[in-house]
Every structure is written in C-alpha cells, then in structure tokens.
Simulated scan of single mutants.
Amino acid sequence: MIGLFYFNLHWLTPNTLQKGTWGTFIGLLLGAFLITFVIDKVIFDLTFDDMPRPRHDGPPTLHGEGRPRPFYAGPPMMLNSPHFLGISVSFILVVALSSVIALWRERTENKAIQQQIIYEKIAAELAVLKLQVSPHFLFNTLNNIRWLARQKSEQTEGYILKLSDLLRYMIYHANHDKVAFSQEIKYLNDYIDLQRMRLIDPSKVIFEVEGDTETLMIEPMLFIPFVENAFKYGVHSQQDTPIEFRLSIKDKVLHFYSKNDIFTGNSPLLEEESGIGIPNVKKRLALHYPDKHQLSINTEWGQFEVNLLINLSA
C-alpha cells in the first residue's frame, strides 16, 4: 500500500489523470489492484496454508495408521471474504488520498507559475513605460536648453548641470520599484526650474509641497508627464503663464494637483499628443496602485486640471 501511494502520487496521477487520459488511469489502477491482490493472497497463503481448518459438518475420519485426518477447507475464498473487502477499501482510500494530494499539488504549482508569469509581465510593462517617458522628457528639456543657449545666457552652464542631475536620477533611480518621495520632489523641482527659464514671468509658476516627504516611498516619475503636459499646452509666448503644481501628504494619502490654462491651438489630446506620458501614467497607476488611487482630469473652462490621490499605506 505504501508503494501504491507513492506510485500514484508521483507517476500515475501526474502522467494520466492530470492529462485527461482516464482510460489509461483506470486500466493501470486495475492492474495495480490485481498485483496488490495477488501479493496479498500469496502472503496470506504462505502464512496460513499449514494451519488446519476444522469443518463443523461432522467428526474427522481415520486415515493412514489410524490417525485422524484434519479437514482442510482449501484456499480461503478471497472474493467472498471480509479480507477481500478490506483490501478493496484500503486500495480505494490510498488511491483517492494520493490522487487528491497530487491534484492539489499540481494546482498549487500552476497557480504559482501563473502568478510568476503575471509578475514578470507587469515588470516588463513597467520597464517599457518608463523607457517611453524618458525620451519624451529628454526631448523637451534639450529644446529648452537649446533656446537658452541661443540667448547666450550666463545661466546655460547651471541649467546643463541641472539636466545632468535629472539624467542621473533617471538612470540610477527610475529603474527602482520605489524611491524616496523627497528625491522625486527634487527631480520635479529641477525640471520646473528648467522650464521657468523660457517664461516671461517665471514667478507665475507655483510649486508647493506640504506634509512629511522624508519617510514615504513612491513609484518614480509618476508626476512628470502631468508637469510636461502643463508646460507643453499652458505656455504662451507673449502672455503670462499661470501654472500651478501642489503636492500634499496627509495620513499617507498623497494628493497631486496641477492646473494650467489651455491657449488657443494648444488643446491637449490626452490619448495621442500627450499620449507618451498621461496614458502610460494611467497604466502604471493601475499596475502599482490598484484600487488605491483616484485620477480625474478636467479640461473645462479653458483650463487643464489634474487631481490625483494615491494611498501610500501598505
């Protein structure tokens, strides 16, 4: 029975029942039952064959030299005995138990494999999304520094150093699952400084942060597409450009808010023109913060307004 248990657990059920070949499974089980029955009968006969079995239908008769001859009832009728019933019940229980364990183990392993596949798929998607954001950001920032260089500004070198810091952040931190929220704020602040340099009145751009930014961790580069979008569609070459960014944290709930005017001819197409950034942010939020975020985007009254809430609690 022990041999039957491990045979069914490690070979029979995995190679037949789990693959749907019921005929093979039942046929091999019948063969195993026959082998078990024969082995048990041999052991039983070897143990009890020399023992006389008295009959109760009359006294023994004399034979040979007057010795009474024992009445031997012959081999036990295994198919009609409680012994056969015991073998059958034991066989069924052993097969059922080992099959259940094998099926449960196979289901657990498949579930673990599926979870690993999903995890690897999500990781690959996130890597692609981050790569999509980076060239877009770099393209816009280099255009800004080119504009500054054409003006022959003495601040060009300082802004190149800022860009260097930004690229360093993107290379060494953007690939992390989480970064310190304070690092993300510095990254945004440097980017906004780079954008302010081409505005008529840089003071019209507001960037405020409230709450504890030192202890929380966050997915990197979540907000930069919204910031890029604001400067892309909310900047006018001859008018003041009021742009507002606010980040606040309360009870581990992060609130990001941005608002900018939409000037004529600069209407953002959320799924196309700004699509390298904002739709990807939506995907990343869904992957990293499922059921823990709320994002609303409003484009009424000639303004582009974003409200993003993220629950950063474990």
Rank of each mutant, 00 (worst) to 15 (best):
residue 242 P to R: 05
residue 101 I to P: 00
residue 18 Q to R: 12
residue 217 M to D: 09
residue 301 W to G: 05
residue 273 E to N: 09
residue 104 W to G: 09
residue 118 I to Y: 10
residue 183 Q to T: 07
residue 238 Q to L: 08
residue 241 T to L: 03
residue 298 N to M: 06
residue 112 A to L: 07
residue 258 S to Y: 07
residue 250 K to W: 01
residue 60 P to T: 09
residue 280 N to K: 04
residue 248 S to I: 01
residue 25 F to E: 05
residue 61 T to D: 10
residue 178 K to V: 09
residue 21 T to Q: 13
residue 209 V to D: 12
residue 100 V to S: 11
residue 162 K to R: 15
residue 167 L to H: 07
residue 216 L to M: 08
residue 230 A to S: 13
residue 33 F to K: 07
residue 231 F to S: 02
residue 263 F to L: 05
residue 135 P to F: 15
residue 7 F to C: 02
residue 168 R to S: 15
residue 263 F to Y: 15
residue 302 G to W: 11
residue 300 E to Q: 11
residue 38 V to S: 12
residue 54 P to G: 03
residue 214 E to L: 08
residue 99 S to D: 11
residue 76 P to K: 13
residue 38 V to Y: 13
residue 117 I to D: 10
residue 277 G to D: 02
residue 308 L to N: 00
residue 266 N to P: 01
residue 142 L to C: 09
residue 256 F to I: 13
residue 147 W to K: 07
residue 71 F to V: 07
residue 74 G to T: 13
residue 267 S to R: 09
residue 175 N to A: 11
residue 273 E to G: 06
residue 78 M to C: 03
residue 48 F to S: 02
residue 104 W to M: 09
residue 236 H to L: 04
residue 204 K to I: 03
residue 261 D to Q: 09
residue 183 Q to H: 14
residue 38 V to T: 14
residue 197 M to W: 02
residue 304 F to Y: 15
residue 290 P to A: 09
residue 74 G to K: 14
residue 225 P to E: 08
residue 37 F to R: 05
residue 119 Y to M: 09
residue 6 Y to V: 08
residue 211 G to S: 03
residue 251 D to W: 03
residue 111 K to F: 11
residue 54 P to M: 06
residue 266 N to Q: 15
residue 27 G to V: 10
residue 185 I to Y: 06
residue 191 Y to R: 00
residue 282 K to G: 01
residue 92 I to F: 15
residue 103 L to I: 11
residue 224 I to C: 01
residue 175 N to G: 11
residue 249 I to N: 01
residue 281 V to N: 02
residue 19 K to W: 05
residue 169 Y to K: 05
residue 130 K to G: 07
residue 250 K to L: 06
residue 34 L to V: 13
residue 62 L to K: 11
residue 148 L to N: 06
residue 247 L to C: 10
residue 108 T to V: 11
residue 301 W to I: 05
residue 200 I to D: 10
residue 197 M to N: 05
residue 37 F to A: 09
residue 139 F to I: 10
residue 232 K to V: 04
residue 253 V to F: 03
residue 184 E to N: 04
residue 188 L to K: 01
residue 131 L to K: 11
residue 246 R to Y: 12
residue 109 E to S: 12
residue 153 S to G: 04
residue 242 P to E: 03
residue 293 H to G: 02
residue 76 P to W: 15
residue 17 L to A: 15
residue 29 L to H: 13
residue 220 P to D: 03
residue 1 M to Y: 14
residue 221 M to S: 09
residue 248 S to Q: 10
residue 129 L to E: 06
residue 47 T to H: 08
residue 168 R to L: 12
residue 258 S to D: 15
residue 37 F to Q: 12
residue 288 H to Q: 12
residue 204 K to F: 08
residue 23 G to T: 13
residue 227 V to E: 00
residue 27 G to R: 12
residue 4 L to P: 01
residue 215 T to I: 06
residue 131 L to T: 07
residue 131 L to F: 06
residue 221 M to G: 00
residue 33 F to G: 07
residue 194 L to H: 03
residue 19 K to I: 14
residue 258 S to M: 14
residue 167 L to A: 12
residue 155 Q to H: 09
residue 242 P to F: 06
residue 235 V to M: 04
residue 302 G to L: 12
residue 38 V to A: 14
residue 160 I to N: 08
residue 175 N to P: 02
residue 108 T to I: 10
residue 35 I to N: 04
residue 63 H to C: 08
residue 312 L to T: 05
residue 152 K to F: 13
residue 64 G to H: 11
residue 258 S to I: 10
